[in-house]
């Protein structure tokens, strides 16, 4: 709110200058290193750095908003923000509802984190975040799945014994692999690369982001970000 008042004061002073279009970037803010809220209360992470750079290259004014993962797609299509940049993998199912830009992180196998390294996942209880490719994968296999609204809760479920293992992107799990939690050898190749989600009718914006992502791939700056934030393999 204080930030609100401050921005209000700033806007009152500078509003004629900021007449251009603002692209609102929607993210979850709970999935480090992709996106999280830093100590200052701002959106931070690999996707913040990437998004700001993409907006600079596409000459767009961008603004960051956070939204619950569960309702992140409905709020995009109804126009509350213009992009989803939240570690979302491009899947056929999501593609029916929204469009995806060119991928900015290559497909990365999902990993399991469990208390017991010899766990047989086919007979175990697996925790995953709701509406993720991992949750869909476990449900598809017919294994026992418990879903949670936030990534944090999936880890807590394994720690307190509610689930035997958690299935998620390995770069997210990396920082949690301690105090008895360890990676299983088994990995699952699910989902396409991570891409920006856009409304299907927003072809222009998609073209701008595609061009910006291509240029970042070409000059190596995207790979630099991927290495810096350890979010997966490089292009």
């Amino acid at each position: 709110m204080k930030k609100l008042l401050l921005t209000a004061a700033l806007m009152a002073a500078t509003s004629p200058v900021l007449a251009g279009d603002v692209v609102r970037m929607g993210t979850e803010g709970a999935y480090p290193p992709y996106n999280f809220i830093n100590d200052k209360g701002e959106v931070d992470g690999m996707e913040r750095a990437l998004g700001d750079e993409l907006c600079r290259r596409a000459q767009l004014t961008c603004e960051w908003v956070t939204n619950d993962w569960d309702s992140i797609i409905p709020n995009l299509v109804s126009g509350n923000y213009d992009t989803i940049i939240a570690g979302m993998s491009a899947t056929a199912e999501r593609d029916q509802v929204i469009d995806f830009s060119e991928a900015y992180i290559p497909p990365e196998p999902s990993a399991y984190l469990a208390m017991d390294a010899g766990l047989d996942v086919t007979k175990a209880v697996i925790a995953a975040q709701t509406s993720t490719i991992q949750a869909a994968f476990v449900a598809d296999k017919g294994w026992t799945l418990v879903e949670f609204a936030t990534p944090e809760e999936t880890i807590a479920a394994v720690r307190n014994g509610e689930a035997d293992a958690v299935l998620a992107d390995s770069s997210f799990l990396d920082s949690h692999a301690n105090d008895g939690l360890q990676f299983l050898d088994r990995k699952e190749s699910i989902g396409g690369g991570v891409a920006i989600g856009l409304r299907e009718s927003d072809g222009d914006l998609r073209a701008k982001f595609d061009a910006a992502i291509k240029s970042m791939k070409a000059d190596g700056s995207l790979n630099k970000l991927i290495v810096e934030w350890e979010v997966g393999s490089t292009w």
Binding site: T7, G79, V97, R199, E200, S201
Partner: peptide, 25 residues
Amino acid sequence: RQGNDFIVCKAAKLPLSTSPQWVHE
């Protein structure tokens, strides 16, 4: 209505997409 998308002209957006974040809030 275009498929799943709900598209109105820019002037009809509420709040305007150019509005600062506090207006949205």
